[in-house]
Write a protein that binds this DNA or RNA. Structure first.
Lengths: 199, 199
DNA sequence: GCTCGGTTTAGACTGCCGGTCTAACCGTTC
DNA sequence: GAACGGTTAGACCGGCAGTCTAAACCGAGC
């Protein structure tokens, strides 16, 4: 299919996001999407192959926007360390700006991960840039050298903190979140006190 | 229903885990569970209300085991900081010991989150202990004082790193993983170099 | 104002699959 | 041997994703 989705359809689709959020992709009936968006079923299936394609379309928009913001932050000036903080800010900022889509994405990551197109975008938008910055940082001396798995840790910390705020209060205090997760990731939790088991 | 599941049934059910892993809960057909476990459909529905209940049963076993390991680590001796590392080790160790169940849990977190029983267990097994240790740590001076969202960051970092290893190589090098994520969380990524924007 | 392409739509229909129901069957206990 | 809890096959039901048909609709070009 991959026909181009006309603007008025694309504009109405986001009304279905909260359905996906509440019921998940499989739990959301197509009739409910019809009711929520006002787009008749036959029209929906004229433009999309499946319910899943509708879902993917909505996430694509988010991921494209996000990838761009992250990429811009990554290509900015400053040390790798400074740009890493900028990337974190871009991620948190994007989540704050699109809370519903982000919640849908994250709370359906499993399902999304099984859609190659989406999985690839997530990888490209989140992991790859962070991983590259970590490598750069160990070259320019602004960050400790670490293995590739560390990018996952950074990703996990940033995303879960944002998710925590979204779930608890419904919105993300961007400044405070970036400061606290940034300082956690850069300086850690330890005080000057007794050294323990740490490699 | 909540009848008690007889041992031979319980023993055969894990054979369905890889189905849930590959196809997700909704994507797994009951007939496939029947084929994988050798338990006839009627018997399955004699013991369980639904496919979802089977799924929940499998995760329960994992979560109970995990909650116990984490709790033991948390109640050990030493500073809060040392016990935090022990808790991280318990989590990583449990994931390494039950890779399939863990993958199923994490890659269906969305779905699991909509099952109150499971969501509660995850909260109790992971978040609560970490959160408490962070508070203790700021009291005994072994950890910096941080907000409640920090527990989510720790959780995210630990779980995503483990997940990374599981997906990449199929198993988790426990020692190395605990060391690297432990040192990330305790000491951070920063080198002594140029101080940037960090609260 | 007619035709022609793409778009929109209603509504009936198909097929898959989760879950139910029935009724038989089996082993144990009293 | 009657009663009971568990086990099983197989027919069945209902809900829902996705298809099909065929009729409008609508703008562009002549």
């Amino acid at each position: 299919m991959s026909r181009q989705v006309p603007p008025d359809i694309a504009g109405r689709l986001p009304a279905a996001l909260h359905l996906f959020l509440d019921q998940g992709l499989d739990g959301t009936r197509v009739d409910a999407i019809v009711a929520a968006t006002g787009i008749p079923k036959a029209t929906l299936y004229y433009h999309f192959d499946s319910k899943e394609a509708i879902f993917a379309f909505l996430l694509r928009e988010l991921l494209d926007e996000l990838a761009e913001a992250v990429d811009a932050a990554k290509r900015g000036r400053g040390t790798a360390r400074e740009r890493l903080v900028a990337v974190i800010e871009a991620i948190v900022g994007a989540m704050a700006a699109n809370p519903t889509s982000c919640l849908v994405l994250l709370s359906n990551l499993s399902r999304a991960g099984r859609m190659p197109e989406i999985a690839g975008s997530v990888q490209a938008a989140f992991h790859a840039p962070v991983e590259e910055l970590l490598v750069e940082g160990s070259r320019d001396g602004s960050l400790r050298a670490t293995g590739p798995a560390t990018a996952s840790a950074v990703f996990g910390a940033v995303v879960l903190v944002s998710l925590h705020h979204l779930i608890m209060t419904g919105d993300i205090p961007v400044r405070a979140t970036v400061d606290s997760v940034g300082s956690l990731l850069l300086h850690g939790l330890a005080t000057g006190a007794a050294e323990g088991t740490d490699g």
